[in-house]
Each structure stands twice: as structure tokens, then as C-alpha cells.
Amino acid sequence: MKHLLYSIASFVIALMIWQLLILLGDFDSALFPNPWHVAQALAETISNGTLLEGIAASLYRFAVGYLVSAVAGVLLGLLLGNVNVLFRLSNPVIQLIRPIAPVAWMPFIVLLMGIGDTPAIVIIFLAGFFPVLLTTARAVHTVDDIYLKVARNYGITKFSTIFQITLPAIFPQIANSLHIALGTSWIFLVSGEMVGTQSGLGFMIIDARNNMRTDILLATMLVIGVIGFILDLLIGKFEKKVLKHYGIH
């Protein structure tokens, strides 16, 4: 209850500061719309369908890119974590590629594959893949020796050990990296869509800028924030559920 009150207060204060800036700042109202105009723009994009279209396009790319990065990151991470030769062979190159911002890949990917869904999906993939991969590979080495002894003692095969012992043992660490990857992926999705696509929330921002519709621009930004927040909430719930399934409270 208290939490809710604080949340409401937080938004009211933010709106007041926003309104205050407009009153004091003497901005061109077309360049810096007030909250009411932004709300109207939001209603407009909802009623003419552009917002839902944009959200659908973005979420689709996000879902594909994020899921592929999560699954590939965890599976390859388990592989690298278990086969030391592979880890040592790939780690130097991974460390070199990792600091390249996903957005920096964009021109190259667009030139290679053209604009459309693919570049945005690749960007999300790149944003999520490396953190999940490295966290998983490193976490494999943190598994308590006693669990591995138990597995050997009871004749559980190496392959089965990976999924019965290693994966659940390191799941909290993987979940944490998936959580972080979700946030960064969403952030990079928008920047990806601003360059390489003709649809989606990122594109709506560019489109609004080109048409000088700052009200739509701000409305879209708000929607991006809200969806990011909801996604974070959902993965938090998922994390809890799986941890509970594994008896970790």
C-alpha cells in the first residue's frame, strides 16, 4: 500500500517538474509539448493503430532475438564451461568482440542483409548473447565439488550430469544474467530500429522526429519505458518461479 502511494507520488512529482520546466523555460510548445498534449498524441497513435503495429513489430523482433540469444548463450556456455580446450580457444576472440557496441555492428549488418527485421534481431542477439554465454561458462566452474562427486558415485553420465546437476546448480547465476540481458536487449532494440528498419518503436521515434511531432516522440518514449518495465517484471516473476521449482527460496 505504502509502495503504491510512493509510486503515485513519484509520477505526480515528475509530471509537475515537467510542467514547471515548460512554464519556466519558454520553449516552443511544438518542440516541448506538455503532458496533456503527449497524452493526446498517445491516444491518437492508439486509435489510428500505429502504436500497436509498432509494439507488435518490436516485440516480435525482441522475442526472437532474445530467445535465440538466451538458448544459444546457455547451451554454448555449458559447452565451453565443460570443455576447457574450447573455452581457452574461443575466449580471446570473445573478449575482443564483446566490447564492440551492438549498435556499431549495425551499418555492417544492414549493408550485408539489408533493412528489415534481421538487423534488429541480430542486434538484440548480440546484446544478450555474450553476457549469457560468459556467465554460464564461468559459472560451470563454481559448481560445488560435492555435487559432482555425488553424480560420479551414482554413475550418472557426464552428459546427464550437465543437465541434472550443473544446470540447476548454476541456474541462479544464469537467471541473473538473463535478467540483465533482457534489459540491455530492450535498450539496444530501440537503437537498432532507429537505423535499420521501417517499423517498430525505434522507427516511430525517427518518424516522429522527421515529421516534427515531438508529442508522438515523447509518447513513444514513454511506451518504450513502460514495456521495458513490464518485461523486467515478467522475467523477475519467471526467475522466482524457476528458483522455487528448484527449491531455492
Binding site: K149, V150, N153, G155, P168, F171, H245, Y246, G247
Partner: peptide, 17 residues
């Protein structure tokens, strides 16, 4: 190791999940 001889540890070695 073999299932013909099983080790029991001080900290039980149960799988918490």
C-alpha cells in the same frame, strides 16, 4: 567410483533443487 560403494558426506551432498 561405483554404486557398489557409496560415500556419505558431512554436509550430506543432497541436491537442493
Amino acid at each position: 567410483p561405483s554404486t557398489r560403494y557409496i560415500t556419505i558426506f558431512q554436509h550430506y551432498g543432497l541436491l537442493p533443487w
